[in-house]
Design a protein around this nucleic acid. Sequence first.
DNA 1: CACCATTATTGATAAAACCAATCATAAAAG
DNA 2: CTTTTATGATTGGTTTTATCAATAATGGTG
Lengths: 290, 290
Amino acid sequence: MRAPTLDLTLLRTLVAISDTGSVTAAAKRLAYTQSTVSMQLQRLETQLGLSLHEREGRRLRFTPEGERLLTHARRLLALNDEAWSDMQARQVTGDLTLGIPEDYASLLPSVFAYFHQLYPAVGLTVICGTSAHLVEQVKAAEIDLALVTRQRNSPGGEVIRREPLIWAVGINQQPSLSDPIPLALYSPGADVFREVAEQALQAAGREWRVAYTSQSMAGLAPIVMAGLAVVVVTRSMLTPSLRPLDESSGMPALPVIELALHRAPHRPSEPARRLGELIREQLAAPSEAL
Amino acid sequence: MRAPTLDLTLLRTLVAISDTGSVTAAAKRLAYTQSTVSMQLQRLETQLGLSLHEREGRRLRFTPEGERLLTHARRLLALNDEAWSDMQARQVTGDLTLGIPEDYASLLPSVFAYFHQLYPAVGLTVICGTSAHLVEQVKAAEIDLALVTRQRNSPGGEVIRREPLIWAVGINQQPSLSDPIPLALYSPGADVFREVAEQALQAAGREWRVAYTSQSMAGLAPIVMAGLAVVVVTRSMLTPSLRPLDESSGMPALPVIELALHRAPHRPSEPARRLGELIREQLAAPSEAL
DNA sequence: CACCATTATTGATAAAACCAATCATAAAAG
DNA sequence: CTTTTATGATTGGTTTTATCAATAATGGTG
């Protein structure tokens, strides 16, 4: 009358036996007694009405039915674990503030959408600011997380990704590349891009002038598109209207910079932990594409 | 320490509550007491640590979390049921003989393959014969099942599918269609096709001659392909080298025939039951394509 | 307000899952 | 060949748990 239902606990034991190859080892892994695991296996066989295992000597072998059930079991457990962690995720509540440099906002929307899907009960606030300022805020625990750009091997935080910087100009534009080179730069101290650009030019013995400054890429764009200046961007910030300059342009090579995640000291709240993990997972991949 | 595991029994109850809309009705469906179902729901909420339902007045409503869990539950239960019935199917053993008309052998291979995948422990024997002979054998319990062709509304057996008969000739051939019409037919009494064809021609007042006879389509094929005769086939037996004749050819319309499954009397063995079900499921669909 | 239907709660009972200890067996070591 | 040693099965006893029956609570209805 009542629909036949498998016991996922028993299936988990079955998988453990298969993984470890022995009842005793499975018991150890699952924190059961050996006798319990032995009986669980028997229970499973009784419930299904067929034998799942045989012994040849001391070695355990699964019957074809056992092997078959194992594949069902793994599928079911995977689904179970997914369901469970999804339900747990919906219990994560709280508020959370993340700081990012304005120019990286374009990278994050998909991460935010995913985060909200997983943790709908978390109120996420995003603030934009300069990397230097964000680091101060996260150190002062004014915000929970800060994703910042910085020079290689800077201390603190967790490196999420390394990205090469490149020179770029407006598409179809050919600005003057003779000294002094006209640059479109962030405001002084605003971010690492300006620092890096000036150091590279100085090291190459080149002259430059700041044709335009702004707090963000959006502000710099008009000048660059008009062909009046050269700008520094990461590869991921390239748009169809920007043309990268390679070595043949005569511009000095730019170093690789880091994208790093800083966490507020002594306060990894659960939402912050989760978002940090998600950012690492979601943004880490492209680093290998270098 | 131990991995969190959902109880599929509780999930099944949850789904029943959702389906029926009430605890009491769910209890009735599952053959539990009302109090049991009520406590099962509570247990689920306790285990997950969140509330799945609310009441507005007497009406029950699921929380967003409850709805979410419901979709997980349905997926898990579907997988569970599939796994369970797969495991049960492997316990079905025995031997089984099915009789089919030779010309239908081409329809069945995929069914046999599927059957063997589902019931690997069943030894299946297939014999070919004329419909009339097969019906006798199944009545005498010499074989377990017989799939036969017959005229419409014949008694006995279960109708699996109805199919129109059509006249066909070799592709690119144009045999003489004036009286007497040259026919390629099964041997007398072999199957319903000959009966039906002769009745149709007689009713139309036409003359014919039997240009060739054989026990099977395979034997008739050479004559038909050579353009020396017209043959009777079902739509599903048409091959690329056969051209169907429509009404404009002047040939009389042919009736619809039935494909019917006969079971041995008083002996539906488990394997026979299963194969019968499978044949019905697998062969029924095309009947709507008429 | 009384009545009906539905749900939650309580107490008791039967079943089960588990553990600790013991027994059985087979490979390995002496 | 006997003795360990490791592993799995079995047994007895205890605790937990799932279930039911009965009852109380709740909300809607005539």
